[in-house]
Design a protein around this nucleic acid. Structure first.
Lengths: 297, 297
DNA sequence: CCAAGTCGGTGCGCTGGCGTACACACCCGG
DNA sequence: CCGGGTGTGTACGCCAGCGCACCGACTTGG
């Protein structure tokens, strides 16, 4: 069960631009007061990070041994734009939103990092400053590595660098995709896409997300989300109640979503998919109907 | 004088999605018929590529000696999404648009590559497939390198890799920026930004761009561009006549543009600007007060 | 010089999302 | 059990940009 949902994190006091629309509201503020980072004895599903799993045994075990297992809490801001990157995170069952800074306007999610990725990739590029806000979107555990250790491992372990480079490529695609998606696709479709992406990374059919939070992610009004979500619910694709959204009909949701979702997945699978990097010319086309999440369906 | 403007490149035959809006129209099709790549004796301004200029003398000269100087022609498509990257380009006075593929919808520019950058960065990440369309937007010269040679140089010359990594970081930012910009800013502001970015890369106050072409870049209707451009013209910031746009009042244009322009530039300068990479530990921490970040608040 | 093509300007009705405001349902703590 | 906070539903006027259509000015080629 989700014992983690923060009781009531303190309100954000960034009144940077008062004319701004849709500043992140109450609940989704700074780090939660009490349980910021806890080493949990993970008694749940054995979810692993796909980037790390792909490493050769020796490397993987060494890297894992240097990681700290921490709990990330919904609403926590791991990085603000411009912060120095002091740690990187490999989500397990947690996941993290990448948001463009609300410079004079609302924020907007441009990427989502789950157990298929890592937060802090700029270090791989030799830059120690973050360019986006990293907001914990799904409570759960992650593996954390200090920047310096991470860089040691980057030098030491070519496979790690190889995978991360490809991951960066995937991220860039996700960004570009987001641009077009945000521009051209109607809200319902974008919402459906978002729910699917979250569904994949939450490793559960239900997760906690309010309309208000969604409006912040999608860069629209809360009311807009309510309308769009209402449509999806009336179609029987999802159901929700006071912030708890349940995915009822995943194939239906995929039909309702814009093509961007599939394209994201396709690129990821092609770059970092199941078949290990031995054969570089893999080109997977996922036979299983749609599952992309769990290690096994 | 611009002797380069293609007489009448053949029409695009990619009717991939017929329902699509704003497919690239007539003039801006595939490669121009006749003068695709010509080694020009560059008798004009001595413009250099900033990425290459930043290399140590020996490396720079070696790399330059392995480059071919080619002329890129307005409308030429260097890469289509999914193409294998067989060459990379370092623009000199030419410049290249990065477009998201119009999958069921119109295309949209997400990045612009001039003499400050390179086309084909995915190779740096170890991926030999392009993810976006690369369309020559400004006729001019560029330095071209075969993919294999480029990769040799990458291995050989750490400085090259260093700079390109940082350039990738800049590009990622440009993408993310574009997402927010496209979502939140009104067309006039976006147009002004676009003109400024182009102005920078064209190294001239006048360049050839029709409203129709702009509509393709900005992902809007041609009529929308006409309106927006009309406003800028009425304000005396630009003037245009049958595709030839002249920047009259650059400061005014900067005022009319959204903040995204400045932010793009700021990041570039910070990452690859004049101050050479000697001091890696710059760690700008901008004394902004409202930063809510950090492990402690 | 004319014909055809290109480029830009204008109008009209439409719609998706905006800003605002209010109302109700649920939850939790006192 | 009550009151306040939170999450959701609904309504109304508004506007930027859309799709479409048409026209005139300019350019180029025969």
């Amino acid at each position: 069960m989700f014992a983690s949902r923060p009781t009531s994190p303190r309100r954000v006091d960034t009144v940077v631009n008062s004319q701004a629309v849709r500043q992140l509201p109450r609940d989704h503020g700074r780090a939660a007061p009490a349980p910021t980072e806890i080493c949990v004895p993970h008694g749940k599903r054995p979810i692993s990070n796909r980037l790390l799993s792909a490493l050769p045994r020796r490397d993987r075990e060494r890297v894992l041994s240097r990681c700290a297992e921490v709990e990330l809490v919904f609403g926590q801001v791991l990085y603000e734009q411009g912060d120095a990157v002091t740690q990187v995170y490999f989500p397990l069952d947690s996941f993290i939103s990448l948001l463009t800074p609300g410079e004079g306007h609302a924020s907007l999610e441009v990427g989502l990092v789950g157990n298929e990725g890592m937060l802090g990739v700029s270090l791989v590029l030799g830059v120690d400053a973050t360019s986006m806000r990293g907001l914990v979107q799904g409570t759960g555990t992650a593996l954390r590595l200090d920047a310096q250790i991470f860089q040691e491992e980057l030098e030491r372990c070519g496979q790690l660098r190889w995978h991360l480079n490809r991951y960066i490529y995937v991220l860039m695609n996700q960004f570009a995709q987001s641009t077009a998606c945000t521009r051209f696709h109607v809200l319902v479709a974008r919402l459906a896409r978002w729910l699917l992406m979250t569904h994949d990374r939450a490793h559960a059919d239900q997760f906690h997300v309010t309309h208000e939070f969604l409006s912040y992610m999608l860069g629209v009004r809360r009311v807009g989300v309510t309308n769009a979500a209402g449509m999806l619910q009336r179609q029987g694709l999802i159901s929700y109640r006071r912030g708890d959204i349940t995915v009822l009909d995943r194939p239906g949701l995929e039909a309702a979503a814009c093509s961007c979702y599939r394209e994201d997945i396709t690129i990821y699978e092609r770059m970092l998919g199941p078949p290990p990097p031995a054969s570089l010319a893999t080109r997977r086309q996922l036979p299983r109907e749609l599952r992309v999440s769990g290690e096994r369906a």
